[in-house]
Design a protein around this nucleic acid. Structure first.
Lengths: 338, 338
DNA sequence: CTTTGGCACTCTCACCAGTCAAGTGCCAGT
DNA sequence: ACTGGCACTTGACTGGTGAGAGTGCCAAAG
């Protein structure tokens, strides 16, 4: 029995099933693919594939559908990445280059990714903890209020307003600003926090309350988990394609989309490159018939955060992978120039 | 025929239908409500109500369900607002007071509103054009870059970074800042824009390029439609309650939720107080079996923006109205203290 | 004039064969 | 190792039937 042909049969099954959404039998498979053998032969191969756990039948007299393991093999060894059309590439580019700030970049990415893949798209905001400090500003407002602005290497701008108990002198502000700048600019945010902690003692006792107050706020901003976990979701209307059974196919996904924590886990650690998780590999029950395609993104191959799509396991993997990869690249490039 | 009793019958129908989700017949209606009359009488009343267009039958031998017009009458004249429980009020309060900035307030509002009503919640960000300027800051960054920060009366902080063609002098920056401050602080954003336009000519010719560049950016920020239209959506998993037919009941809503423009129309102009739009009153086909309960919110009865919920027409109006109203009040209060 | 009890009527829905088509497994033959 | 053939399984579709819920209307009673 030719191992080669068996894999071809598996590929054909996956492709047909993705296209038709219906279990594929030996006969209809031969209608669409010229394998040069008879249905009976295909049946034998199918039986073998089923023994190995790559495909299964929903019921005895139905065709076969791929298992998670089958999809896995397909993605790893049987599919060739489908290049995006020139039109699609242009669409991504023009759509993203119109963005005015980081917020906008993320919003637009979600939209374009959802449209391209016809799936649910999720994009994590550029991580704070992975960025470096580009600029820090202290501004005295009316009364004893201080405006604190931090600009990171990814173009994100965070600001806080601090209400101090006493009004600091102009000199102190200037001094503080320059010292903070010297200590933190160019550093990654977590390291910048450490530098700041050491700095407090270098100030005169009288100034300590003000300095402490400002520094702790700054530290909070640097290590703020909430804003590090921000995520945009889009294309939920595409859930229609997930299946017709609302309770088992759609509701769990909607619920997952509402939980940032779950989303972050799904996107996974921003490992380098692209990852595909299929069905149970997502590690989340309720998403058993769901697959996640995700990719790290960032300027100059520096993984800043992750984006991806969530779709049914029976998705067009080559196309989805291509789209996610392309958007990740473009977003990275766009951020670099902000 | 007692008009009074007929309205009671309508109220009973609405309440039963909302509770059971099934057409209600004369018999089962009497099981739940003591009207002191016989089924036949109720049937007569029902026939009259149907003639007047308040109720209808899905098919000849089924019970009655309220029409949009029936719900309308119910909301306007038959329902009494259901007060929130102390626990619910406390939940809103504790949840909102934990917020650190405007972004956070909005996020939390959506969440609490969705949980309270078991519906889809939408919250518009505090409008820029309705706020006044509280503070403006110009900061010279490295090179010829300028950081522009605007703080509005609603606590929102907007920032832009401008790349100038030539590096302005320190004096010019200081001068510009104080003049801009004098011209705009306390003004509503649209008026502030006008003031700025007049200001350019008061500067020396040499300084004009820099001033113009900064002023136009500022004007853009003031009148930026995009950020005026920001909206947060939550509780989409509650769509499960909208009905079982995905394509007609759920998909249109999901699609509407993705379109900011549609959402804004749904929330409606921030009229004072609370508004309920039922079925076709939403003015959006696809939302025919959907109702929108919305309310303006803002500190001190100043309508800053709108929030609300989207749910099936067969919703618990008294409870929803109470929840939307309460959240709007608390959000307004929270914003006032930011 | 309003209310009531009774009765015939209309639909929907669930249930139950019976038939059909697709697909399988297996075996004997090439 | 492949192929053709055949018996078998099973879900999907079809049409018919009966039960149940609910209505509309009419004549009688307040």
């Amino acid at each position: 029995m030719s191992d080669d042909r068996r894999l071809n049969v598996l590929r054909a099954i996956v492709e047909d099933y993705v296209a038709t959404q219906e279990p594929v039998g030996s006969r209809s498979l031969l209608d669409r693919h010229q394998l040069g053998v008879s249905p009976a032969t295909v049946r034998n191969d199918m039986a073998a594939l089923e023994d190995d756990g790559y495909i299964m039948q929903p019921h005895t007299s139905a065709g076969r559908i791929p298992t998670d393991k089958g999809y896995r093999l397909f993605v790893d060894r049987l599919s060739t990445v489908k290049a995006l059309s020139a039109a699609e590439r242009r669409a991504i580019e023009t759509f993203l280059t119109g963005a005015v700030d980081v917020d906008d970049v993320v919003q637009r990415s979600v939209k374009v990714l959802a449209q391209l893949t016809n799936q649910v798209a999720i994009v994590q905001y550029p991580s704070l903890t992975r960025s470096t400090v580009r600029h820090i500003e202290l501004v005295a407002l009316e009364g004893s209020r201080i405006l604190l602005v931090v600009i990171t290497s990814s173009g994100r701008v965070e600001q806080r307003i601090i209400e101090l108990v006493e009004t600091p002198t102009e000199d102190l502000i200037v001094d503080l600003r320059s010292r903070i700048t010297r200590a933190t600019v160019g550093e990654r945010l977590p390291e910048a926090s450490l530098r700041l902690a050491d700095m407090i003692e270098t100030f005169a006792i009288n100034d300590r309350p003000v300095v402490t107050s400002i520094v702790t706020t700054l530290t909070h901003t640097f290590t703020n988990e909430r804003s590090d976990e921000r995520i945009a979701v889009g294309g939920t209307a595409n859930l229609a394609r997930f299946g017709s059974d609302f309770d088992t196919a759609i509701k769990p996904v909607l619920e997952a989309m509402e939980e940032q924590v779950v989303l972050l886990k799904l996107l996974g650690e921003a490992t380098n490159g692209l990852s595909v998780r299929i069905g149970s590999e997502t590690g989340h029950e309720g998403l058993v018939s769901t697959a996640v395609v995700s990719s790290a993104y960032g300027p100059d191959d520096l993984a800043l955060a992750t984006l991806g799509t969530v779709g049914p396991t029976r998705m067009d993997y080559p196309a989805t992978i291509a789209a996610v990869g392309a958007v990740a690249r473009y977003v990275g490039r766009t951020l670099a120039s902000t």
